[in-house]
Amino acid sequence: MSKDAILGAIRRGLKRGPLPADQAAMLNGRIASHPRHLIPARSRIPRAEQIALFIKNVEKEFGTVQRIPDLAGVPEAVTDYLAAQNLPARIVMAPHPELESIDWTARPLLARETRRAQEGDLVSLQHAWAGVAETGTLFFPSDPVRPATLNLLPETEIVLLRASAIVGAYEEAWDRLRAERKDPMTGGWMPRNLMLVTGPSRSADIEQTLELGAHGPRRLHILLVEDEAAPREMSRAEARAQATAQPGTPAAPGD
């Protein structure tokens, strides 16, 4: 069997047999504790600055951000954005409870369908699970209320993100995923599909010149709900102390 052949060849190269049980247990322990390596200092900053950094990075990657005070502001923000972009007042929306809880009646002219995306859909309204300030990256774990096609097929993607869901570094999002999610099939936490999205789709394949809107959305517009009433201001020193106190900086990959 090729599995045995491959593992055998690797072990011959490493000049050993299968790992002894204690060493295998050590490696499994490393997976279970998933130690963090160095986390760049750029996101280890006070809370308000983290949110500003997130916005700055999204804009650097050609996304746009609109801050809105609460969920009630979503219908107006969506219709205004569509009008400004000369797009028809029609969206396909993720069946996410937060989006469905919104009172849309004030905007009766906005046509909405709640489903996955199909060919021909021009605009999607999606729900982001987290944002990472370090690079302005959105996290979209797939599940029945967050179909992945909404991130891919329409030319314009509008995303709802709560400010409280913005973290500094990817590692914080991993820990939140580990703590908060449960996958029905594996019993673990990783969903079937997890998209990390940083700006709209693009290609530089034609003469190394950047063009937006290759196969995915050409526009990525984030509605940032300011749900952190009074974000606790951490002092810089405090933030750094927290950063260095995080487990296992840097992990010793040799262990």
């Binding site: 990657e61 069946p95 489903r115 996955r116 990256t137 797939s142 599940d143 029945p144 179909p147 992945a148 096609t149 996958d183 029905p184 099939m185 594996t186 990783m190 969903p191 079937r192 599909n193 997890l194 998209m195 990390l196 999205v197 940083t198 700006g199 709209p200 789709s201 693009r202 995915g216």
Partner: peptide, 17 residues
């Protein structure tokens, strides 16, 4: 732009994948 993690098959209730 896209860093995507794929893990297995479509889960029950998923609308795509």
């Amino acid at each position: 732009v896209y860093t995507t993690f794929s893990t297995g098959i479509r889960r029950q209730g998923d609308l795509d994948g």
